[in-house]
């Protein structure tokens, strides 16, 4: 039997993509989940079929998960702790959260 017929290694999976769905105008794209996709068009279609078919959807963004730059747990202390006792430094101390009027206008 040729090698191509053996089961793929776990890392032979298609690329992982993060999916962001906008439900209507004037709302932000929100993270909906992740899907696998062979390439951008395939991933976009998969995102549509998994996340957008049932609900109300205005637009979909996808981005390959590898392209997201994120903090690590090791960063937590130096990144976040210094501000945790100074809530007035956070923009949302003064005003809105995502669900507030700010986004609906």
């Amino acid at each position: 039997m040729s090698k191509t017929n053996s089961l793929p290694e776990p890392n032979d999976q298609w690329n992982l993509w993060e999916v962001f769905i906008q439900e209507s105008d004037n709302e932000p794209h929100r993270h909906a989940g992740s899907i696998r996709g062979a390439d951008a068009e395939n991933a976009l279609q998969n995102a549509r079929d998994v996340f957008a078919r049932r609900g109300k959807t205005k637009s979909i963004w996808i981005v390959q998960s590898d392209h997201i730059v994120a903090t690590t747990t090791g960063d937590s202390a130096s990144f976040f702790d210094p501000t945790s006792d100074k809530v007035y430094r956070h923009p949302h101390f003064y005003k809105h959260t995502l669900d507030d009027e700010l986004w609906k206008k």
Binding site: W14, I35, R36, G37, Q45, N46, D49, V50, R53
Partner: peptide, 11 residues
Amino acid sequence: PILEEDIALTN
């Protein structure tokens, strides 16, 4: 062949 495609075909 893959979960996403399973959902696509059944949709």
